[in-house]
């Protein structure tokens, strides 16, 4: 029996049905917002500040992680007044390195855990991996749900597992990755969102980045609406992290418009919204330079780290 810290399984019968076409239409409508001038600049700066700069490769090395952390701190030194990214996101084994590299900057260190990306590990391994990441200094833990169990209808298992990981996190904030590309339907995404939030998630996150499709605007809309309904019902705020596939600033601005119009200004900061992305930052920097100089930019002038 898992202690769920008093969290209770949501009444899944109250989880609303989702009409796929309606979601896609609404998401498309959001992309019709035209974001220009100072709103665009503000949005781009905010985007930078919401990025979880990520490297999750088997070939990751300490050197690679250090480089990424340097980039996180110094996005573009020739552009004064830029914010840093929100966090760097690495495997547990790299947490220690990352933590040292970003010390004193306010940049958080996020670690994936629980048998990322498949989640195919024993309960004990998931718990101990989580605890290890936190001990190594992770401020945030990005866990994956057991999609196999979820798809088999074992919702209580999924709920209990999330609650247990939450407990293992201690003070670290927990992001729960639903891996929406494997859940396929919006009905399932909504149900998984509700389970995760009621089990104690601080963030819900679309994807590992290892499965296609990763984050999309429609699936993010479904999750943002779940967050709003959870807030209606409990008064608790939960964060949102679309991850994977967001590499263009225009798309990032669509996400911000969606966030703005579904959840509102309270959520418009990196306490409550993140982009899980590796190459988005440079595109945003190029756009910012273009806004500043009026000249379209080239990739070779922005460092790849």
């Amino acid at each position: 029996m898992v202690d769920t810290n008093g969290a209770a399984m949501p009444l899944l019968m109250r989880t609303p049905r989702i009409d796929q076409v309606g979601v896609v239409e609404r998401a498309a409508r959001i992309t019709k917002r035209s974001i220009k001038k100072e709103t665009k600049v503000n949005g781009l700066l905010l985007t930078l500040n919401m990025i979880d700069l990520t490297t999750l490769e088997g070939k990751d090395s300490e050197g690679k992680v250090k480089q990424m952390c340097y980039k996180a701190k110094h996005l573009l030194d020739t552009y004064p007044g830029l914010p840093t990214v929100a966090a760097v996101c690495v495997y547990p084994a790299m947490v220690h390195t990352a933590k040292k590299a970003v010390e004193g900057t306010g940049i958080r260190v996020a670690s994936v855990a629980t048998g990322f990306p498949s989640g195919q590990a024993s309960h004990e391994v998931k718990i101990s991996e989580t605890k290890f990441a936190v001990e190594q200094g992770a401020d945030e833990v990005d866990m994956v749900i057991s999609r196999g169990k979820f798809l088999a209808g074992e919702y209580n298992f999924v709920f209990d597992e999330i609650a247990a990981i939450k407990e293992a996190c201690g003070n670290a904030r927990l992001k729960v990755i639903l891996e929406t590309g494997e859940l396929v339907t919006f009905d399932k995404v909504r149900r998984a969102s509700d389970i995760a939030m009621y089990a104690g998630a601080d963030f819900i996150k679309t994807s590992t980045g290892k499965v296609t499709p990763a984050a999309t605007l429609p699936v993010t809309l479904v999750m943002l609406e779940a967050i709003r309904d959870f807030h209606y019902d409990t008064g608790r705020m939960v964060g949102m992290k679309p991850a994977g596939g967001i590499s263009k600033s225009k798309l990032a601005l669509h996400y911000l418009v969606m966030l703005n119009e579904v959840l509102g200004e309270e959520w418009m900061n990196n306490q409550w919204f993140r982009f899980g992305a590796s190459s988005l930052a440079n595109d945003v920097l190029m756009q910012l330079m273009k806004e500043k100089t009026g000249v379209y930019q080239g990739k070779d002038y922005f460092s790849l780290d």
Partner: peptide
């Protein structure tokens, strides 16, 4: 009635 066919869907 909508058809669950994300590829074909456009804004209303």
């Amino acid at each position: 009635h909508p058809i669950e066919n994300i590829g074909g869907a456009k804004a209303g």
